[in-house]
């Protein structure tokens, strides 16, 4: 189909590739564009005329209502704090532990890694109550610790980074040892530069996962002061999801779409900034030897 271009991967791509990507991008973006545009429509029109867009009726009512009704600024602040703290812990601890799993042999390794896999496979939802009981014992309900620490080093990150690091040739590590590198030095100076594309990918997915996470924050952050962006969104969403009982779901739908639109903006900014790192990562990755 579109993969028939003769040019190599490092050459300018064929028009067919663009066509494929554009079709895909349109399909992926269309619902989001619908949500963003709808946020400017009168709330009742979103339900009554979901596919009609009349710019003359556009306004900011949903946004104004949303800013009045939900603590979205708290949400931004808390999400930013959690993102920085939790993201740093994940990006530091997970690849380091994964390095040990991939490149060392030590007693207890297989048992430990097996348990990691087990937690990866266990649905989060069953762990909520035990975790919340634990938070209560620690006096951590409604604290940043509770938002940041559980899940800071998730099994997914370890699992993935172990795969990535396993691909680093052992000969490079041996050469490093000969050069007198310490064990952490091997990781920091040899492994990290090679796995940079993987780290960049992990950074992107970690940011997205933290940004998206709502099951745990909704439960553990009960006050508005501690609400993350997703908690704010889920407060709106819970009113309209399910069975539409009650009268006000048009209004709340409008506010939800407005909140979703506002919530997308910082993410696009973060993503744009990470993008540069991403490209640096590629360069670093491709000059490795």
């Amino acid at each position: 189909m579109t993969l028939t271009t003769r040019a190599g991967e490092r050459r300018r791509p064929h028009i067919g590739s663009h066509a494929f990507l554009i079709v895909l991008a349109v399909a992926f973006l269309a619902p989001v564009v619908w949500a963003v545009l709808s946020a400017f429509k009168p709330a009742n029109d979103i339900i009554r005329h979901p596919l009609a867009f009349d710019p003359s009726t556009f306004g900011l009512d949903n946004f104004i209502g949303m800013f009045e009704d939900v603590p979205i600024w708290h949400g931004f602040l808390n999400t930013a704090i959690v993102l920085v703290l939790k993201g740093s812990i994940t990006l530091f601890c997970a690849p380091l532990a994964a390095y040990a799993f991939a490149k060392y042999d030590f007693p207890g390794k297989n048992l430990l890694f097996g348990t990691v896999l087990l937690t990866l496979m266990l649905p989060t939802i069953v762990l909520i109550i035990p975790l919340l009981l634990e938070m209560k014992e620690l006096g951590w309900v409604n604290t940043y610790q509770a938002l940041v620490l559980p899940g800071a080093v998730d099994a997914f990150a370890i699992f993935w980074m172990r795969q990535v690091i396993a691909a680093v040739p052992d000969e490079l590590l041996d050469a490093g040892r000969v050069d007198g590198c310490g064990e952490f030095g091997l990781y920091w100076r040899i492994v990290v530069p090679i796995i940079r594309p993987g780290l960049a990918g992990l950074a992107v997915l970690t940011v997205m996962n933290i940004y998206n996470d709502f099951v745990w924050p909704v439960v553990v952050a009960s006050s508005e002061r501690m609400a993350t962006l997703q908690v704010v969104l889920s407060t709106l969403a819970s009113t309209i999801s399910g069975n539409k009982i009650g009268a006000d779901y048009a209004t709340v739908t409008g506010e939800l779409l407005a909140a979703s639109t506002v919530a997308l903006i910082p993410l696009l900014v973060i993503f744009f900034l990470l993008q540069k790192h991403f490209i640096n990562g590629i360069l670093a990755g491709s000059v490795k030897g």
Partner: peptide, 26 residues
């Protein structure tokens, strides 16, 4: 407080953490 009652109430009641004084419920 406006909250996602469906997601929060059960967990909050079972664990007894930060329990509200009154809740609106179906």
């Amino acid at each position: 407080e406006a909250v996602d009652i469906a997601a929060k109430l059960q967990n909050t009641l079972i664990t007894g953490s930060d329990v509200p004084d009154g809740v609106f419920l179906d």
